[in-house]
Structures are given as C-alpha cells and as structure tokens.
Simulated scan of single mutants.
Amino acid sequence: MGKLVIAAGTGFLGNVLVNHFKNKFDEIIILTRGETKISDTIKYVNWDAKRLSGWENELENTDVLINLTGKSVDCRYTVHNKKEILNSRIDSTKILNQAVLLCKKPPLHWLNSSTSTIYRHSIDKEMDEYSGEIGDDFSMNVAKSWEKSFFEIETPRTLKTALRTSIVLGKKGGAFLPLKNLIMFGFGGTQGSGNQFISWIHEKDFARAVEFIINEKLTGIINIVSPKPIKNRDFMKTLQKSLKVVIGIPVGERLLKLEAIMIGTESELVLKSRNVIPKRLNENGFNFEYGDLNKAFDNLIKKL
C-alpha cells in the first residue's frame, strides 16, 4: 500500500497500528503534538488538533487516514475534564474534515475512532451495529457527538468508517497491565456484582480488524470487539488462572467507587456492562486470531 497518516499516533493504539503497518505501507506519517522529525523512516509532523498550520498538506495523496485523537477517559469526570474529553474529539474531527475537503487529492479512506461505550449498560441484550441501543449519559453523549461531527460533513472522495472500539488488551498499554497488577496483589476477584459484561479485543486483532476494514473498504459504523462478551467475574477468573494466582479478593461497588476517587478515575469504567458484538466484522468474514480469552491472555503473558 501507499501512504498512511495517523493522527495522534504516538499513544498505545497508535504504536499498535504503526508496528502492524510499518512494513505494509510505503510511507507512514504521524500527526503529533510533539516536534516535527523523522525517526525510523516514520515522519512525525506537529499539529495542535484544532487549526490548520501546514500539517494538512500531509493528507494529499494519502491512501488511509486514521484519527485516534481524544483525551483519555481514565480520569475523574470533573467539569474541566469533561470539557477536554468532548472538545479533544470534536475539534480534531472537525479540523480533519476541513483539511480533507481542502485536499486536491484527499485520503481515499478515513477511519475515525469511536467507542463501544456508546451503547447503553446491558445485561440482557447483545449490542450490534444494527439493533444496538444507544443510551443517554455523559460518555454516551460524547460518543454520539463525536460520530455526528465525523459523519455530518460529506466527503465525496473519501470513504468514512467509525471504529466503535472496546477495551484493547495489549502488552504495553490498555487495560491489561493494571488488571494484571491488581491480580498479582491479590485483588483480582469479582468487581462490583460481577454480572457486568466486558467487551474486549486483543491488540493484534484490533490492528488486523483495521487492516481488514481498509482492504474490504467497509464504511459506516463497525464494532471493534471480540466475538463474545464475557462477564466480569469470568474475565477476572480467567486472568487469575492464566497468571497462576490463587487468591482473588472481590471488590464491591462501594469500595470500587472509593478507589476510583483515590486513583483519579471513574468507577463507570469497570461497572458499566459493555455487552457488544462485532456483527459487521463477522458477516464480512473477519477471522479473529485471539477470539478466545484464554488464548489472548496466554499470548500477552508469554510476551511479558
């Protein structure tokens, strides 16, 4: 393939994609808040994700644009943080829309981050792209606004895909390391009721799914999750077993909320039931390499 541009490509998911695609594209450009430089054949170009300043020229003749921009939701939902979470997603998507429309030869395909958190808390129903029920709270409203800002501007020469991504399990980032540490300290039991579902995906399948979407030219909304959501209690037991840890003290909802305050995050990240399935990936023939949680954990632990 030709040219890949990743906006905000220096974080965990950006590194996962760069490692996956570095030998598959002739040219990779990362839009970053850091300095403009070239390192290991990858070009880093400074941008502030809010305004045009010259970086937009890098979008010319691009085959694939992937936007991963957005302040982490792993924080307290203060008024300030809520504003940053929303604005970081909307501002970057709007300015990229503007930049794409200005291109003489715009990107052929633009994949924009979204989140599987857009669906309501669900114990009773699996959420797919067709019949999934979207709820109404801060996190879900951010996701709705994010996707609206992406799709509301028509880009006739650029395909558009929103990636409703779940928890990505990886060796060097995402949820795996803090969960592993929790279990190693003996606090890896059920979190809250344990009935809430976790939708997850192995980092390699995340990158493979992105490549599949590009190759198949899939557009619209796609859930980037493993085939089968798993209840929290079973997820934690499986990780305990993989790490060969016997003791797993459960943590109730009240204590979880207190701990969340102490470490500067929100208990919703653990307590919300994300019961999401990848219907569009499945019906288009995508094969998961790590669709089984035991296999996913074994792979991640062997790499440690």
Rank of each mutant, 00 (worst) to 15 (best):
M1Y: 11
M1L: 13
V5E: 01
A8N: 15
G11D: 00
F12V: 02
L17D: 03
N19S: 10
N19K: 13
H20Q: 08
H20W: 12
N23T: 07
I28T: 04
T32S: 10
R33D: 08
K37I: 01
I38K: 05
D40Q: 13
D40G: 13
I42L: 04
I42V: 12
Y44S: 00
N46T: 14
W47K: 09
L52C: 04
N57T: 14
T62A: 06
L65A: 01
I66N: 09
G70P: 06
V73Y: 06
D74A: 12
H80Q: 15
K83D: 14
K83W: 09
E84V: 08
E84Q: 14
S88V: 07
S88Y: 01
D91T: 08
I95C: 05
L101H: 01
K104R: 13
L108A: 10
S114F: 02
I118D: 14
I123N: 11
E126G: 07
M127S: 12
Y130M: 14
G132R: 05
G132C: 02
D136S: 14
M140S: 15
V142Y: 02
E152A: 11
E154C: 09
T155Y: 00
K160L: 09
T165N: 02
V168W: 06
A175T: 11
L177P: 14
L177W: 14
P178I: 00
K180M: 11
I183S: 07
G186E: 11
F187D: 12
G188W: 12
G189V: 01
T190I: 07
G192W: 07
G194M: 03
N195S: 15
F197H: 14
F197W: 12
I198R: 09
W200Y: 06
K204L: 15
K204A: 12
D205I: 04
F206T: 10
A207Q: 06
F212V: 11
E216Y: 03
K217H: 08
I221F: 07
I222R: 09
V225N: 11
V225E: 06
S226G: 14
P227I: 01
K228T: 15
D234H: 11
K241W: 00
L243R: 09
L243G: 05
L243F: 13
E253N: 12
K257Q: 10
E259F: 14
A260R: 04
A260W: 04
G264N: 02
T265S: 07
E268F: 15
L271G: 02
K272Q: 13
S273I: 03
N275P: 02
V276E: 00
V276P: 01
V276A: 02
I277M: 02
P278Q: 05
N282K: 11
E283L: 14
E289Q: 14
D292T: 03
D292W: 09
N294Y: 10
N294F: 10
K295N: 15
F297C: 05
N299T: 00
K303V: 02
L304M: 13
